[in-house]
Simulated scan of single mutants.
Amino acid sequence: MNFDSRQLRQALGAFPTGVTVVTTVDAEGVPYGVTANSFSSVSLDPPLILWSQALTSSSHAAFRDAERFVVNIMADDQVHVANRFAKSGGDKFAEIAVRTGLGGVPVIEGCAATLECRKVAAYPGGDHIVFIGQVEHIERLPRKSLAFGDGRYMVTFAHDLGGHVGAQAGVTTLPAVEAARLAAAAMPQICEDIGQRTLGLAVWGSHGPTIVRWEPSSHPVSPYLQTGVLVSLTQSATGLAFAAFMCGQTVQAAVERELGARAAAANADQGCFEQRLQEARQHGIARSVGAAPSQRHQVTVNAFSAPVFGAAGQMVLALSTTCEAERLPADWDGAVPAALAAAARMLSLRLGWKPEQAAAQPPCLSNS
């Protein structure tokens, strides 16, 4: 073989799975449980499933000798349960809500689904043993399932946008709230793609560009992230994205009010706003460069914001990243803005936007 076990594990990690906790009891009624993602369906008639366990597992003897087991499919808020049963030692069932299932086997409460099984066969498989179970009772709750891939937990979301079809064949009329749902579900992966930098999702709210969600990353820009924050149309990267790419008199009027207020407060824009609009349209992404510590984050930050378009060609969302200036160079052609723009384009395509719409779209806001 031209690979080792580590490389094989990495390759297998490219196939995301669900996460289960398999439970059983021994002859004395002592409960056992182990976290496993080696679970699969086998047959519908008869209803058969399988899972495999390492021969070195401390609970192997209990599962080998047991007549029954339960496959508890973890919901997306049960990471703590999966982690508990992935470790050896201690009372794994302490503070875990369970009920007694068939044959006295514990069934974990709050799962996405549970399958109570009678073991019908066991086969050796290298350093594992494969258990076949016949399903005798099931329960399915309206919960989203926890996923696992590339060595970490993941969340799942529907790839199909739900078939919102408009009057014209093939035209998606996806509402902004559905677009926000799709973008929010994709944010953890986008955060990875831009190098674990803080990622924000903004929509046009009742008073202007509003941050509705943050993905703080493993290195959040600061502990002062808030949702529901109204951001400046003329000074922030997020606001500039809406000013540059969102059409409508509402945006025009809001920009004029903000510039007027700044001028009245002797805080004039000094003509930089027009230049920032032109740069954003030229590069397809907006930028703000910090010159001093941010009042909110209390560190000097740079930021980029990319527009997300809907099926009709209109801007519906902004994806923004903000980070300490030393971790986010202001270079237009940097890896972070390129990855952010690519993610925004991907979301736009999934929302029904077509690239030819961009060429036909006139500038949304005059620079006068």
Rank of each mutant, 00 (worst) to 15 (best):
Arg99Ser: 08
Thr100Phe: 00
Thr100His: 08
Thr100Asn: 03
Gly101His: 04
Gly103Pro: 01
Pro106Lys: 06
Val107His: 01
Ile108Lys: 00
Glu109Phe: 08
Glu109Leu: 08
Glu109Met: 11
Cys111Trp: 00
Lys119Ser: 09
Val120Tyr: 06
Ala122Arg: 10
Ala122His: 07
Ala122Lys: 03
Gly125Ile: 04
Asp127Gly: 13
His128Asp: 02
His128Phe: 09
Ile132Leu: 15
Glu136Ala: 04
Ile138Lys: 11
Ile138Ala: 11
Pro142His: 07
Arg143Asp: 01
Arg143Lys: 15
Ser145Arg: 14
Leu146Ile: 06
Phe148Asp: 01
Phe148Trp: 06
Arg152Pro: 02
Thr156Asn: 04
Phe157Gln: 07
His159Pro: 10
Gly162Tyr: 13
His164Asn: 08
Val165His: 06
Gly166His: 10
Gly166Asp: 12
Val171Gln: 11
Val171Trp: 08
Leu174Met: 15
Pro175Lys: 06
Ala180Cys: 05
Arg181Asn: 10
Arg181Tyr: 10
Ala186Val: 01
Met187Phe: 06
Pro188His: 03
Glu192Thr: 13
Glu192Val: 13
Glu192Trp: 04
Asp193Ile: 03
Gly195Leu: 04
Gly195Met: 01
Gln196Ala: 11
Arg197Gly: 00
Thr198Ala: 07
Leu201Asp: 01
Leu201Asn: 00
Ala202Asp: 05
Val203Trp: 00
Ser206Leu: 07
Pro209Ser: 07
